[in-house]
Design a protein around this nucleic acid. Sequence first.
DNA 1: CTATAATAGTACGATATCGTACTAAGAGAA
DNA 2: TTCTCTTAGTACGATATCGTACTATTATAG
Lengths: 143, 143
Amino acid sequence: MPAFFAIFNEIGIIAQLARSAFEDNLPDGMILPHFTALNHLIRVKDGQTPLAMARAFQVPKTTLTHTLSVLEERGLVEMRPNPADARSKCVWITPAGRRFRNDAIVAVSNLFAPMEAQFSPDRVAKILPDLTALRKMLDAARD
Amino acid sequence: MPAFFAIFNEIGIIAQLARSAFEDNLPDGMILPHFTALNHLIRVKDGQTPLAMARAFQVPKTTLTHTLSVLEERGLVEMRPNPADARSKCVWITPAGRRFRNDAIVAVSNLFAPMEAQFSPDRVAKILPDLTALRKMLDAARD
DNA sequence: CTATAATAGTACGATATCGTACTAAGAGAA
DNA sequence: TTCTCTTAGTACGATATCGTACTATTATAG
């Protein structure tokens, strides 16, 4: 029993610490989900629907509505009607949104840089596949 | 750059999925932090101050105040004055709190059991030290 | 001993997350 | 076409998290 318990516990703590450290490097009032949404729009593509994004992040769609409304208020994304479906919308990142995301990437690089001395990228690369397998297992278990 | 980014991203997703799955197995209205607090009081010891617990969980003390007030309302913990310091309190787990925690442990065991077929405890044990090292590094970086 | 600083906890307000219920629109069956 | 079911998004309310500011108490400097 304790094996999974221990590992998920450790992972939970790491997620919390990493998130905290990351958010300390974001401008005031911005939090991880704001960055995550913008990053997704660039890494995957923009013009997606809010629902598609909610599924990608595994959060309820009401949570996404809220996150996007914040980003829209701050001019980091733009919501346009979906030409293919009048119920729906498409989310586009703005130039300001791109700038914000790029600045955050720089900040996080500075945050991680000193860690590479203690924890080599090789070592990171070695655990990543196991974590990915773990994630896929949980994802599948979610039926 | 992408190494740490990728690993913290994966860890964040796993934490979210595991938390979700875990909370689905808790009674209505109870969430992970409620269990975490009770579990800590048993695994470490009860009679601790709220501040000591807040530090252990790396959350603001106001968050702990809220969590403990919920647990107290539900009769799962008891707050008593700290005989050594009149500003302070001590948190004691009640028999109902112990029952709740034990039930949750059983539920989570059932949740993890089917996963052991796909992800052996051996494999889990192999990544755990790396995760612990990662956690300690983040903890230290937090100055 | 007294004045000041530090500490434990809480009150309060802002924002985040999420569940339920609703509206509007699309999809499929008869 | 029309009736029904599903889907996309939002409104709303409940709870969680967290920062700031406050009170009460303790520790420390002088």
